[in-house]
Simulated scan of single mutants.
Amino acid sequence: MEKAFGKTPLLLCLWSIFMQFSRMSGLAINELLYFRVISPEDIRYIFSAAPAKDFGGQFRSSYDEIFLVPADPADGCSALTNGEIIQGQIILVERGGCSFVQKARHAEEAGGKAVLIADNAVDNDSQYLDMVTDGSTTRPSIPALFLLGRDGMMIRRSLQRQALPWAVISIPVNVSSLASFPLNQPPWTVW
């Protein structure tokens, strides 16, 4: 490894972090999708999320500023009642109560562009789950992404603390095109 990277300690450290992440999550770094929170300021980081394995669509557009709106009900297991503010936005739901497919279908029916499903294990800051179909024949076509529990909790907590109805995000973000490292990732998450 020293021959490939020279003797630069920073590069060795970065390679070590990448390898640790790959072993912990089972995912390669290019299998994740990234988004940046623009506002509120206290969570202005780049987050990673894992796309669903066998349902949901892909991002066909890049959104420089779009709202990330928490679902009501939070678990997204029934028709969403805050449809007026989630129409055309990204919807944040919590894991649990029903299948990933049902959550994504409810988000799509409410007019969401995509759904981020945050793990309900709020201490999870490294383990991505494979979101797979539940066997139903009707599958959602919007992108569905799995978000680490700690990331979801910190986003919801910030919005609640500031009484905000949504966060403003950019999605997807091409992290390989960002000029500087370290990326502005959440301080509670190891990449």
Rank of each mutant, 00 (worst) to 15 (best):
S22N: 12
E94H: 04
S78Q: 15
S22L: 04
I17Q: 09
L33Q: 09
L80Q: 12
S78H: 10
I43C: 01
I66A: 04
E84T: 14
A104F: 05
L14Y: 12
F18H: 12
D75F: 03
E41Q: 08
I66W: 07
K53W: 08
Q58R: 13
I43D: 00
F21G: 04
G57A: 03
C13V: 14
I85M: 10
I46Y: 08
Q102Y: 00
R23Q: 09
S16M: 11
A28K: 15
A49L: 03
R60H: 08
Y45M: 01
V101M: 09
S61V: 08
I17S: 02
A52F: 10
S39G: 00
G96N: 11
I46K: 03
S22Q: 15
I29K: 00
S22R: 14
E84C: 12
I91N: 09
S99E: 07
D54C: 12
I46A: 03
C98E: 00
Y63K: 00
G97V: 14
E31G: 05
A50H: 13
I29R: 07
S16F: 13
C98R: 09
S22F: 07
D75A: 10
E41H: 13
R36F: 07
T81A: 13
A107K: 00
V37S: 00
S62W: 08
G88D: 02
D75R: 08
W15N: 12
Y34V: 04
F100W: 10
G111A: 11
C98L: 07
A28D: 15
Y34D: 03
S62I: 15
A79V: 15
I46D: 10
D75Q: 04
F59K: 03
G56D: 02
F18N: 07
D54E: 04
Q20T: 14
G76Y: 02
I91K: 00
S25I: 09
E109Y: 14
S62L: 13
S62N: 10
P73M: 14
R105H: 13
R95M: 15
S99T: 15
W15Y: 11
P73V: 11
V37F: 03
S39A: 05
S16W: 13
P40E: 03
Q20W: 10
C98V: 10
I38A: 08
V101P: 00
I85H: 02
G26S: 07
E65C: 13
I66E: 00
L92K: 06
F67C: 01
Q58M: 13
N30C: 08
A107V: 11
Y45P: 02
I90Y: 06
S48P: 02
Q87H: 14
G111M: 09
I43A: 01
S62E: 13
A28L: 13
R60E: 09
Y34P: 04
C13F: 10
E94N: 11
K103T: 11
C98I: 08
E31W: 00
Q87T: 14
E31M: 04
L32E: 02
F67Y: 08
Y34E: 07
Y63F: 15
L14I: 13
